[in-house]
C-alpha cells in the first residue's frame, strides 16, 4: 500500500492535521491559532449557513469574467501577432513590459479609473491572464513544425480551417500551459485584491469573507476561508486541468 503515491500523500496530510490539532490544543489560544477540529467545524457550519458558498460563487463568477475577457484579448493579440510582423513586435514589447508586473500592483490605479467594485477587479484579472496566455499561445504557433504546416496546406483547407484544425491543436500543449499559468496568476490576484483592498465590500467574495471574519475575530472562520482557497485551487489545477491534460496532450503524446 505504501507503494501508492496517493496513499503516502494521504498519510502525510493526516500527519499534518494531527500536528496542527496538537499545536492548537497546546497553544490553547483560538484567537491566534484555532485547532484543526475547530476549523473543520467552522468550515462545515459556514457551508451549512450558505455564507461560504455565496462567497465562493461570487469569487468564481468574478474570476471567470476576468479570465474569459483575458482569453479573448489574448486571442486577438496572438492573431494580430501571427498575422503581421509589427503585431509580433507589439506582442513581444508588451509581454516583456507587463509580464513582470504583478497584477495586484495595478489595483490602486484601477480603483481610480473604474471605482470600487467588479470592474477594477476584472481589469487586474485581465492583466493577470492576458500576457501569460498570449505569450504561450504565440510561442506555440511559432513552434508548429514546417512539416505539419505543409501537411495542413496540402489538404486545401481554408485559412480559418487551417488555423482551427491544424495550428490550434498542434500548438495546444503550449496553449494549455498558458491557460494554466494564466489561471494560477488570476486566482492569486483575485484573492489578494479582495483581501487587501476589500474592493468588493458589501458584495463579498472569498477574500472578503476572510477579511471580514478577521475583523470580527472569528479566527476559525478565517482558517476555514484559507482552507477553501487552497481546496479550490487544488481542484482547478489538479482535477480540471489534469483531466483536460490527460484527455488531450497526454493521450496524443504531445506533453512538454
Amino acid at each position: 500500500m505504501f507503494e501508492s503515491g496517493a496513499f503516502r500523500k494521504v498519510v502525510l496530510l493526516g500527519l499534518l492535521a494531527a500536528v496542527w490539532e496538537g499545536y492548537g490544543r497546546w497553544l490553547a489560544n483560538p484567537l491566534l491559532f484555532p485547532t484543526f477540529s475547530n476549523t473543520v467545524i467552522a468550515l462545515i457550519s459556514s457551508i451549512a449557513s450558505g455564507q461560504l458558498l455565496r462567497a465562493v460563487s461570487f469569487t468564481i463568477t468574478l474570476l471567470l469574467k476576468g479570465y474569459v475577457a483575458g482569453l479573448i484579448l489574448a486571442g486577438l493579440l496572438t492573431a494580430f501577432a501571427s498575422a503581421t510582423r509589427i503585431g509580433a513586435d507589439f506582442l513581444e514589447i508588451l509581454t516583456a513590459m507587463f509580464n513582470p508586473l504583478p497584477s495586484i500592483a495595478l489595483l490602486p490605479i484601477a480603483l481610480i479609473w473604474f471605482g470600487l467594485g467588479d470592474n477594477s477587479v476584472i481589469f487586474v484579472l485581465i492583466h493577470a491572464v492576458l500576457w501569460a496566455v498570449a505569450l504561450n499561445t504565440y510561442a506555440g504557433f511559432r513552434a508548429v513544425s514546417s512539416t505539419l504546416r505543409m501537411v495542413g496546406q496540402n489538404y486545401g483547407l481554408s485559412t480559418v480551417g487551417y488555423i482551427t484544425r491544424i495550428l490550434v491543436p498542434a500548438a495546444f500543449p503550449s496553449i494549455l500551459t498558458g491557460l494554466k499559468v494564466g489561471w494560477a496568476f488570476a486566482w492569486r490576484t483575485l484573492i489578494a485584491a479582495e483581501l487587501v483592498f476589500g474592493v468588493s465590500s458589501g458584495s463579498g467574495g472569498l477574500g472578503w469573507y476572510i477579511f471580514e471574519n478577521k475583523n470580527q475575530l472569528l479566527i476559525p472562520n478565517v482558517f476555514a476561508g484559507l482552507l477553501t482557497v487552497i481546496l479550490l485551487g487544488l481542484i482547478v489545477e489538479n482535477v480540471i486541468f489534469k483531466t483536460i491534460e490527460n484527455a488531450t496532450v497526454r493521450r496524443w503524446g504531445m506533453q512538454m
Binding site: 512539416t147 505539419l148 496540402n154 491544424i166 498542434a170 488531450t248 496524443w252
Partner: peptide
C-alpha cells in the same frame, strides 16, 4: 490535394 506529399519526417501525422 491533387498532389499529395509524403515527407521524410515522422511528425507528418497529426499527433492528436
Amino acid at each position: 490535394p491533387d498532389r499529395v506529399f509524403v515527407f521524410q519526417e515522422f511528425d507528418q501525422l497529426l499527433p492528436w
